[in-house]
Design a protein around this nucleic acid. Structure first.
Ligand SMILES: [Zn+2]
Ligand SMILES: [Zn+2]
Ligand SMILES: [Zn+2]
Ligand SMILES: [Zn+2]
Lengths: 131, 131
DNA sequence: AAGCAAATGTAATGTTATTACATAAGTTGC
DNA sequence: GCAACTTATGTAATAACATTACATTTGCTT
């Protein structure tokens, strides 16, 4: 997927996520962007959809929130599975990749003729600072 | 955690999930149990919370739905991480456990002084029958 | 019976996400 | 430039998922 110019709405949403320490919900993003003319949830969800397609944003399924990709330059989604740790105290998210886990899950799927699409790995707990 | 008698509501919710081929949302369960006197979402959510505590039910974070544990006799939650494949065509869910993945994730967390709580692994895709 | 903890009933509300439809902006070929 | 097409946007309404608050009941222990 080649680099591409983002639209105004997409850029605003990505900036909001990039500027945030913790993941943001769609409605929190909406509130942050009211001053920029955002008025409806759909403006946020549409931008998020596109940014996810581009691999610039990830959705954290277990907390209904979104984060900017930690290394968008590496074309995150194409180099495989993305996993996250999520601190339940401070909200800090760490994104990581592990080939062994990737292969292990792929093998399990292959053994059962299951054709995998998107895979979610999320570890909720407490980070070093919040221990 | 020792075996314990379920209450009527808890038993009804577990039966509904056990009888279903596919995972069910809380509101779908509510509708199925209206004939048994269920009237409000909270009746379902409370039973689900308890059943999850007991390791008899799992929540699928990526689809906002719930499934009965595939092997409740083994005290599912205590013998580690639970992972799922979820067919996006027919809804079939397969629950599995993998020690290598478990150890790998534990090692990652340990390296970073991250104290893990609940971990989610969900592979969405298409099962053999729906390929 | 008193006291306590767990479970229930009910209503209201909060949060997250989508459908539907109209309008506008960018792209391509002519 | 202009038609045709695709992508993005604006707006309102609604659907789907989940929790708070409070009153009451049930089951167990003392
Ligand atoms: Zn990423
Ligand atoms: Zn933390
Ligand atoms: Zn299980
Ligand atoms: Zn299937």
């Amino acid at each position: 997927m080649t680099v591409q110019q983002l639209t105004r709405n997409q850029a605003l949403v990505l900036d909001a996520l990039s500027a945030s320490e913790a993941p943001l919900s769609a409605y929190t993003i909406l509130d942050k962007l009211r001053g920029d003319g955002f008025r409806a949830p759909l403006q946020v969800y549409r931008a998020l959809d596109k940014l996810q397609d581009l691999g610039l944003v990830h959705r954290l399924e277990s907390i209904n929130a979104f984060v900017a990709c930690a290394h968008p330059d590496q074309d995150c989604c194409s180099h495989g599975l993305t996993a996250f740790t999520i601190c339940e105290s401070c909200g800090k998210v760490t994104e990581f990749h592990d080939h062994m886990i990737e292969e292990r899950l792929a093998a399990f799927a292959s053994d059962r003729n299951f054709r995998p699409g998107k895979t979610t790995i999320e570890i909720r707990g407490h980070c070093a600072g919040c221990a």
